[in-house]
Amino acid sequence: MSDPSTQLIHHPYTSPAGFEAVAPGVHKASTVIFPSVAALRNRDWKHKTGYTYGLHGTPTTFTLEERIATLEGGKFCTLVPSGLAAVVLVDMALLKSGDEVLIPDNAYGPSKAFAQAELAAWDISFQFYDAMNPADLAAKLNRKTRLVWLEAPGSITLEFPDLPALVAVVKANNQSDKMAHPLGTVTALDNTWGAGLAFNAFWLGADISVQALTKYPSGGADVLMGSVVTNDEVLHHLVHLCHMRVGYGVSGNDAELVLRGLNSMALRYAAQDAATQQLAVWLQAQPQIAAVLHPALPGSPGHDTWKRDCTGAACLLSAVFKPEFTQERIDRFCDSLQLFKLGYSWAGPMSLCVPYDVPAMRRTPWSHRGGLVRFSIGLESVADLRADLAQALLIA
């Protein structure tokens, strides 16, 4: 090799082994090099015993998958490009034409939209059930039901369901003559809020746990990623093979950022939880506010269940304004906030808020007449955030 272009591509130098550092190495690859044709033909990416192609994993993504599985208390993890992709992957892996999926009426909106559009177009039916009423779930289970989604707490309105009771309904149905599928009806939990820290999804009975790693595991508001975790090897391989076929992949640089975020995750979760509870109690006392929705507050829907099953409560709260506050006044309140920025997502360092029209999002009757604003509490000073809320309430 005399030409520099060839020498640079096929350079013989290999760095010495034995380098250790706090941060795991970042491996980026589409192509993976095999030492022989035999290795090319025999390597098994499905069980993480070797590397075949970038989509099927690198040392960096394998490391992150193992740490997320540990965080969730599971055995198997698959990474995807976003939290919504995790939901979609479970749907695609488990559902086929003629099946049905049951989804909480208070679930993450895009999850419901995927069922209403793509799943319906694929002849997969769906029903929405009241997650706060296990009897409603029981009434809607049938022989076609292949998958039941769970979410704790509910999106936006933060009701905390009785997860063991909902799981028990599904298990009882699996033991009856209603269930035709050999694997029964599978339960999958969106555990983004709990994040593997507030409670263990598998101890409460879920078969699959998904997260938007975009939120707490990253913590920086700069990464999109999701995960699907299970203890069941059969379910894992159904998910993992579907993952391969649809071509989901995550970048080494994004995996690096999530790995870094995991180191401080428990500290951030606890700090934001404590700050959120302080602000929730303060907002309850404000004359403009009719109700504050937060699982740790007595009187908030599902508080007793949260108290029984959880050790934390994350960074979200929702405030319902009194009915005399028009949407125009609520929008003016949001626009008047200085530290709280208008933006979707949560669990990042910066506090956020978004106004929502709850009745337009739900089939289950909404018990409040006033407009709602959801807050994500960041890492700023609680006193500064309280002052910001106070000045915006006066303007509204």
Rank of each mutant, 00 (worst) to 15 (best):
A319Y: 00
D384K: 12
Y129D: 09
A86F: 00
Q116C: 02
T60W: 01
L137M: 04
S97N: 10
V87I: 05
D130V: 05
S209H: 01
Q7E: 10
K75C: 07
D207R: 07
W366Y: 15
S318F: 07
D304F: 04
G249P: 00
G25H: 08
V26H: 01
G98W: 00
P59D: 06
A165W: 00
S176G: 15
H243T: 03
V281S: 06
P355L: 09
A195L: 01
L379G: 13
G83A: 00
R362C: 08
D91H: 09
N106Y: 13
A85E: 03
Q338K: 15
L119G: 09
L385C: 11
G370A: 12
T276H: 09
T187A: 13
L71C: 06
L279K: 06
H181T: 03
L84K: 05
L297E: 11
Q327H: 09
P164W: 04
S318M: 08
D190W: 02
A188S: 15
L293W: 14
D331M: 08
L379W: 01
L213H: 03
A390R: 03
P287H: 08
P182N: 07
R268A: 00
Y129K: 14
P4L: 12
G247R: 06
L166H: 03
H27D: 08
G184Q: 05
A152C: 12
E324F: 14
L316W: 08
D309L: 06
P295V: 05
R363A: 13
D335Q: 11
A212N: 01
A107H: 13
L8S: 15
F114T: 03
Q277Y: 06
T364E: 12
G371F: 09
A280Q: 07
G312R: 04
G249H: 10
W282S: 12
I33S: 04
E159G: 04
N231T: 07
T70L: 14
H181D: 15
L8K: 14
S345W: 09
D273I: 03
Y344M: 10
S2W: 04
G299F: 09
E233G: 04
G378K: 06
T61M: 06
G370Y: 12
S36H: 07
